[in-house]
Design a protein around this nucleic acid. Structure first.
Lengths: 246, 246
DNA sequence: CAAAATTTGTGCGTATGTATG
DNA sequence: ACATACATACGCACAAATTTT
């Protein structure tokens, strides 16, 4: 079953075999694979070759390897549909999980104090001295931490928003309370970067694993800029999906 | 101008100052900032504090820091519009750069030998033993390496494709030659990960900087699955932009 | 080519303000 | 009021990479 000298590296063949075996055997997330020594004996190759195959599976996030413990099947990524309406809770519920959000901070400050002051000024066409509201939020699905987001609102134009956000558990709910029944995504900018130590702590993620990062501009139904959202997602838990037709 | 004990950390204030100074002074990409020691004297703070501010600017990709050399203003990211029609060359030209593609490899193999055999089987509903064509490509803009992609085609259904790809410089051109005038994006899945050493070499990127990764399904005008594309982009050069309305 | 100077990277110790319980 | 934890800020020293002399 393993063919030598046929143009395809042995570790590639082993990786493919393990991939299909994991799927067919239906090993659940968290399930353990045989040890490297066992696999080496089983395939009749050196342990280095097994390690190369496992590294490939690990890099593509099908498994994760823990020093001194073994190799385990990873949780599948949650696909986050980049749709017209950005709604964290609805997304989590579509995956049959229970959404929750923890407010980490809410403050009102002069927009010049914002790290993204220039972006905010451009989007909202802020006047000098105009204040913004900054809400930081940790989003979870079944207690699993999947999103850390900062939401920026032009608070001087949205009377009652601060109180509404303090009392509501979701942003959609707070906006509805001050009379904004609907809002949509105007643009998303997606990039990635390594986490800060704070992000590692808050998201309970690994420092060596990058974060998916999105910068969203959301507007009301009539096109007025409403919210600027900067969010990061652990790349071990979330992927984005874009379907142009939706 | 730097206020101590006013609730905002000094390094944050310095980061904001540097950010706006870079913009106002119009320091071009590649332009050098003063050394850490100079900045520390200038702001009247410890070098550690300057380093914390520079780290912030570096993490948000406004600058990059090189050991022994100094800090430099970074090139702005190229925004890659995730639009209906995925066309590498057109995208690069829209940024007023010259696109080029280097074919790294082109081979025809049984689809079972593909790392993503299961995905390919699902998308194309491949028959047992059906072959696929795998093209690997390095995309550049003004000689700057920005994309490493693998393109998977169900080659048994596309007579003449292999020869066309060998002779053409772009995929769009090769497909046109075998009678496929148009094709569109059905779905994109976006994630990120750390690069392999091969990817670092091919893309001339940094091993500690993550790659944006996309997995695209492209179909012909009538909806027939045509191509599966796996691509990685250096996160220091490319960001994705999604505009639902476009 | 070699030495010196410059610049960033890293580590340790200390002190202070702030938030939490 | 007190203890604890954490982020912030400073000072000093030395390592490592690069450039200049």
């Amino acid at each position: 079953m393993i063919e030598r000298g046929k143009g395809v590296a042995i570790w590639m063949q082993i990786a493919a075999r393990l991939r299909s075996e994991i799927e067919e055997a239906g090993i659940p997330p968290g399930g353990r694979l045989p040890s490297e020594v066992e696999l080496a004996a089983q395939f009749g190759v050196n342990r280095h070759t097994i390690r190369r195959a496992l590294e490939e599976l690990s890099r593509t996030r099908l498994i994760y390897v823990e020093h001194g413990k073994g190799s385990f099947v990873a949780e599948p990524l949650m696909d986050y549909q980049i749709s017209l309406r950005p709604r964290f809770s609805e997304w989590v519920r579509r995956h049959n999980l229970e959404p929750a959000g923890e407010k980490l901070g809410l403050r009102v400050l002069d927009h010049a104090g914002l790290p993204e002051a220039d972006i905010a000024r451009d989007i909202f066409t802020l006047l000098p001295g105009e204040r913004i509201l900054e809400l930081e939020r940790l989003g979870t699905a079944d207690s699993r931490r999947i999103a850390l987001s900062r939401h920026i609102f032009p608070v001087d134009r949205l009377p009652g928003l601060e109180a509404a956000l303090l009392n509501c558990t979701t942003i959609t709910e707070a906006l509805a309370r001050i009379g904004i029944a609907d809002y949509v995504r105007l643009r998303s900018r997606i990039s990635c970067r390594m986490p800060t130590s704070r992000e590692v702590t808050l998201l309970a993620s690994e420092p060596e694993s990058p974060l998916l990062q999105s910068e969203n501009v959301n507007v009301t139904a009539d096109g007025t800029p409403l919210e600027l959202c900067f969010a990061v997602y652990p790349s071990t838990r979330v992927a984005f999906v874009v379907e142009p037709t939706s």
